[in-house]
Design a protein around this nucleic acid. Structure first.
Lengths: 224, 224
DNA sequence: AGAATAATTTAGGCTCTCCTAAATCCCTTC
DNA sequence: GAAGGGATTTAGGAGAGCCTAAATTATTCT
């Protein structure tokens, strides 16, 4: 079955898609780090995926998805995000635990199931973390997003999405009132990758955010 | 991870559980037939499952679940049947297609997800085919069931469950009006494994059923 | 009982996905 | 422009789960 995509292969494609969004071809080491496996194992899988025409790979240079690989990646990402949204909206899952469950279900759910789930909750365009859900046809908004690190003091912004799935981190973000949709205003930013001070609507509560976390908070500036 | 149960292993345990319900230890050949794999492959898996303490096996004699194996089998069966029920009731799946989808999801769904699904549809005790759903604690009704083949002409009965998952067969059963809960009366039975004539309520429509199908229809006699 | 037949197991192989250790390649720095 | 260091690939191996073909064991029939 050289044409069927296994569950591990789907995970590789997702990882490569994510890394490649940064512009560069995905480095073997980066793929390995993201999947939590040894780099040598990635080299092996890269050969198989290339044989299947899902990626193109230049030795020692990096990996890119082909059109077919991109399609497969987006199909898996759609499954993942629809499942996350369904778990949250239809089954009452807290937003910090939908990822783990979806990570397994995405490989087992049929397209029909995913479509039925999407329909049942009103065809959402974003998942519980604010990430856009690709359409059945594989279209997805890939506009580059700014993070809290890209704004200047005085700017107001709305939280679009949180680029991390760690449960503790997500709970912390929620505790700060910074779930997707929340509004905030930059107060100041300490130098040398120091923390960022913001005021969070609706009460303008002051909050300090470390640089790492701030870099994970995707935001859209609000023009006054 | 000698203590973790893989997806194929769960399928073996389910198969052994089903076969063992007939009273006898599960024969290697029967397991192979049910799973659609070669008997030699079953011998290999039997060793692994025995090493894990999930089954007991006497060479050339057959296989039985241990207490741990039975518990694992019932846990998988609960997942499967809850998922089937959920797909049918919450997502509008037709009863002839829930099995296939559940067959994959049962290995990916967490206990929490299964419990949330069960709660969402009112903690059902039976799946769409009428089979009993084990409780979280692993209790399940194992009363031996009669089939249409066990009744005599003149007896009335209620369909309890259909012991097959083939989509075409299930659609045919539904077309005859014999879904679980339906009532019928035996008219006569032709000899030599011939067809059975029944009248199906509420209109007492006459129906002929082959012996094989009749043997799959679990029924409970109705005392007049 | 002995021979044929059926059921089961063993032997040997294959694929997939992972691993560690040992090359190999690329690039930067001196 | 050579050397170091980091990234990548190759080599060799492991376990799970499947296969076919060949043994082995159990059972049934004469």
């Amino acid at each position: 079955m050289s044409d069927s995509i296994t569950a591990p292969a789907e995970d590789y494609l997702k990882a490569i898609y994510d890394i490649e969004r940064g512009g560069e071809a995905a480095a073997t080491n980066d793929i390995a780090a993201r999947l939590g496996i040894a780099a040598a194992s990635v080299s092996g899988m890269i050969r198989r995926l290339a044989d299947q025409g899902l990626i193109s790979h230049e030795r020692y240079k990096g990996t890119r998805l082909t059109a077919a690989g991109r399609k497969a990646a987006l199909r898996t990402i759609r499954r993942h995000r629809v499942i996350e949204a369904y778990l949250a909206r239809a089954l009452g899952y807290p937003w910090d635990r939908v990822h783990e469950e979806a990570e397994r279900l995405e490989h087992a759910a049929s397209d029909e199931l995913v479509d039925r789930m999407a329909r049942a909750i009103g065809e959402p365009n974003i998942d519980p973390h604010g990430a856009p859900i690709p359409t059945r046809e594989g279209d997805v908004d890939e506009t580059p997003l700014r993070t809290l690190l890209d704004l200047r003091p005085g700017q107001r912004c709305r939280v679009v999405s949180v680029a991390d799935e760690d449960a503790d981190l997500l709970r912390y973000v929620a505790k700060l009132g910074l779930r997707p949709g929340a509004e905030a205003e930059i107060v100041e930013r300490a130098p040398f990758d120091g923390p960022i001070s913001i005021k969070v609507a609706p009460n303008d509560l002051p909050v300090q955010i470390g640089a790492r976390l701030a870099g994970l908070m995707h935001v859209a500036p609000i023009a006054d």
